[in-house]
Amino acid sequence: MEIDFITNHHKKTKRNYLERVNKINKAEAAIKAKKWGFDYWDGSRDINYGGYHYDGRWEPIAKKMIDHYNLNNHSKILDVGCGKGFLLYEFKKLLPDCEIKGLDISSYAIENGKPEIKNSLTEGNANNLPFKDNYFDFVFSLNTLHNLYCFDLEKSLKEIERVGKKNKYICVESYRNEHERVNLLYWQVTCECFYTPEEWMWWFKHCNYTGDHSFIYFE
């Protein structure tokens, strides 16, 4: 089922797409970004976030997810592509006794994770989740899986399905027309999967992914 938790958050960022390709060396920015280190998270805005710091903006999203999936203090929650763990921190604030786990490929993000939950974050790849079958009550992945090549995307979707019970949610970048496709190509520095919603739906079906999903667009 398609359900959108992310669009309002996504639209808060103002983007100058032409400046992104006319005023910076896009190839060099992508090379630096794909190392998933300081440059990606806290370096220049030309490369990616330009400083990824906690500011509480993820709390409303955590509340919406908790309400929608009926999560509680007994729930086990996994974030695949957790970054510095800001959204997981919001879950823990709202549900102090829940169990949280986060996984990210970036050692820099894990090392600089939210101190209160840093011990719940693990460095790793989404294509091989180090967790038991059907362990988590809620598994989610935000703006991560489109950064994988297709062979890892297939493994990752199957892994999310394997470790999760009923409730799963994935958000990925997509495009519905040529205008959005060009904007995505201009803006992104790490994306490897450039798919329409219909193609994403094919992937979900192909991998027997049974959870929810949403797409973000660069309008």
Rank of each mutant, 00 (worst) to 15 (best):
K93L: 12
P96R: 12
P96H: 10
I100S: 00
I100E: 02
G102N: 07
L103E: 03
I105T: 06
I105K: 09
I105M: 00
I105W: 00
S106E: 06
Y108M: 12
A109K: 10
I110N: 04
E111H: 06
E111R: 03
N112S: 04
N112T: 02
N112D: 11
K114E: 12
K114W: 08
K114Y: 13
P115A: 13
E116A: 09
I117L: 06
N119H: 12
N119L: 03
L121Y: 02
L121W: 00
T122V: 14
E123N: 13
E123W: 08
G124H: 11
G124D: 05
N125V: 11
N127M: 09
P130W: 14
F131H: 08
D133K: 12
N134W: 03
Y135A: 08
Y135M: 13
Y135V: 06
Y135F: 15
F136E: 12
F138V: 12
V139H: 02
F140H: 05
F140Q: 10
S141D: 04
S141W: 07
N143F: 08
N143I: 06
L145S: 12
H146K: 08
H146Y: 09
Y149R: 10
E154N: 10
S156C: 03
L157E: 05
K158I: 08
I160S: 02
I160K: 00
I160Q: 10
E161L: 07
R162D: 06
V163H: 05
G164K: 03
K166H: 15
N167V: 01
N167H: 15
N167E: 15
N167W: 12
E173S: 15
S174M: 02
S174E: 07
Y175G: 15
R176F: 14
N177F: 06
E178T: 10
H179W: 13
E180S: 10
